[in-house]
Design a protein around this nucleic acid. Structure first.
Length: 232
DNA sequence: GAACGGATTTTCT
DNA sequence: GAAAATCCGTTCC
């Protein structure tokens, strides 16, 4: 299985993002291999994009965005979640594509076990500890950026990982279209709209997804992240 | 089916 | 001190 060449990522993230739809991200660990077909992504530019982590310059967290293309930028957010990006273009642009959702095509049982594990942890210690992991819908396994990271067991240890090298545990490849595989209908329509959870530059349609795919997260028009009301 | 609170890091004011 | 590229269980329509 040949990874996508680095030149693929050496373009503006807005061009790379829609081309990533339908590509496969896979992570090989001691537990096994889990692979997802990407169904939803978002493009982030560098210092010209107020919604980008790179907007205010380089920090310890976003350093990978200021490096060569074809590497993973993994960050921790909201105190409990990881999200993964793929770095695009060159160091001066510090742009990347956020992977928002995917459809598990390999290692579904492992992905389900990981998601159930995390769900249990996040939900606290209730009597439901022994919750049946099969209760998780297949389409929800990697539906959302943090869920995708849970299913693939991606964390900060993969920050900076090269996804263009065959020997790397984390890599991106094109979907196999040969005979014998469960290839779905050929070209599906790609749609675009405003990015999710972003208040700055909300008018830029830099979110891309496969039209009608059940693993794409529901569209939230304004997401109006409710600010905590401060009582004086 | 929408809406809220909680978990609790990284960054900036 | 607060907001953020989030998810989940609960609660109220």
């Amino acid at each position: 299985m040949t990874p996508i060449p680095r030149e693929f990522f050496a373009r503006p993230s807005v061009q790379v993002a829609p081309d990533l739809l339908g590509c496969v991200l896979e992570h090989e660990t001691a537990e096994g291999l889990v692979a997802v077909e990407l169904t939803e992504v978002e493009a982030y530019a560098g210092q010209s994009d107020p919604a980008s982590h790179a907007y205010r310059g380089r920090t310890a967290r976003n350093a990978v965005m200021f490096g060569p293309p074809g590497h993973a930028y993994v960050y921790f957010t909201y105190g409990m979640h990881f999200c993964v990006n793929l770095v695009c273009q060159d160091a001066d642009n510090a742009s990347a594509v956020l992977l928002r959702a995917g459809r598990v095509i390999e290692g579904e049982e492992l992905a389900r076990a990981r998601r159930a594990r995390r769900t249990h942890k996040a939900g606290g210690d209730h009597d439901r500890a022994g919750q049946d992991s099969a209760a998780l819908a297949t389409r929800d396994l990697a539906r959302g950026p943090a869920r995708l990271c849970q299913a693939l067991d991606i964390d900060r240890s993969l920050d900076g990982a090269d996804v263009c090298t065959a020997g790397s545990p984390l890599r991106v490849r094109r979907r196999q279209t040969g005979a014998g595989t469960n290839v779905r209908s050929g070209q599906r329509n790609i749609r675009s709209g405003p990015r999710v959870g972003v208040s700055a530059a909300a008018d830029v349609p830099w979110r891309f997804w496969l039209d009608g795919d059940p693993t794409v997260s529901a569209y939230r028009p304004w997401v109006a992240r409710r600010r905590k009301l401060v009582t004086p």
